[in-house]
Design a binder for these strands. Structure first.
Lengths: 178, 178
DNA sequence: CAACATTTGTAGTGATCACTGCGAAACCAT
DNA sequence: ATGGTTTCGCAGTGATCACTACAAATGTTG
């Protein structure tokens, strides 16, 4: 198979564009310009924009999971324990860009924009399921505690994005205390 | 002063466009088409897009505050009490559209897009300050409890937007219980 | 009414968007 | 080499974007 350009290379360019300029700036033209190729090739491998965004979202999900993987290793009893053990890892500057993308995707999903509207909830659900597996107890307990943990984590991480790390850390300490 | 069209009328059209199609669809042309006027008039009253979006965000902030006002009436001791009293009011279908817009703005802010990047944190801070006034205790306690309450509320409301009301309510119940 | 400022219509700017038609390479198996 | 498929350059489509020049209409004020 002849290939000067590969699909993986273009997807990497798309991800780089997303991290640099945001998801809403991931366009055929911008990716092509960044890679110094014709936008025709980008369209060739990703026939529609939804295909492109879909694969970018999937890759971001994988990136997010890779970010979380080292943290989510040993089982916990409830969402409080989850939060206390994961927050120090998640609230690091290196993790901020991927969460920024996640919240942008979440916002576009909340606004009803396709394909975010359909894909982001799936991503969140996968995250919940994955978290639930680390919980001890009955399946219902696992699921509910995972949902609670994700909710509080999302709120804290969003506050971190919008108001900075000091505010978010202070809020986290209050939540642990309560 | 002669005026067939008023600035308030155009701003109302902009808000309607935002609620219907999302913040990212608030453009000069779409507002003009919705109102059946020339986009020239829209540009006349809002010389740049940042002016337009800025005023739309301000109006959404006012709308959000109006949504919260009846709830945030009597003082509370800490963020737990705040959550328990406000959640039943906030987790109503009528409140969802304005929160959808808030999360879209938050996502664009997280992505670094102006003017969201500068305006949304101000909006969040105003919301925190406003919530802090309802807290009992020292100023530091007020502020920290308000931040914690906002964080958890945001997380739950975002989960509600992305995963639906059942999931969010279940998570809320777990957080109260904990 | 005359002088003036505010408001609005018509038209157009150059940019970017997602996406396409078409033909020429480049690659492959036979 | 020959034929067929995959890849890709070039050019262009119509749409939308923020924004502007210019002049006519519409006010307001003296």
């Amino acid at each position: 198979m002849g290939h000067k350009h590969s699909k993986a290379e273009i997807l990497a360019g798309a991800l780089a564009t997303a991290f640099d300029d945001g998801l809403s700036q991931v366009t055929f033209g911008r990716i092509a310009k960044r890679l110094g190729i014709s936008d025709r090739i980008v369209v060739y491998y990703f026939p529609t924009k939804d295909d492109l965004i879909g694969e970018v979202l999937y890759a971001i999900g994988a990136e997010l999971q890779a970010t979380l993987a080292p943290t989510f290793s040993k089982p916990v009893a409830n969402h409080h324990e989850l939060l206390r053990t994961t927050w120090p890892i998640l609230a690091r500057p290196e993790a901020d860009p991927v969460f920024a993308l996640f919240f942008e995707a979440g916002g576009l999903a909340a606004a009803g924009r396709e394909p975010f509207r359909t894909l982001v909830p799936q991503l969140v659900d996968a995250w919940i399921e994955w978290t639930a597996e680390l919980m001890r107890g009955t399946p219902a307990h696992q699921r509910a505690e995972a949902e609670a943990g994700i909710a509080v984590l999302d709120g804290l991480l969003l506050l971190r994005q919008l108001s900075g790390s000091e505010v978010a850390d202070r809020a986290a300490r209050r939540i642990w205390a309560g």
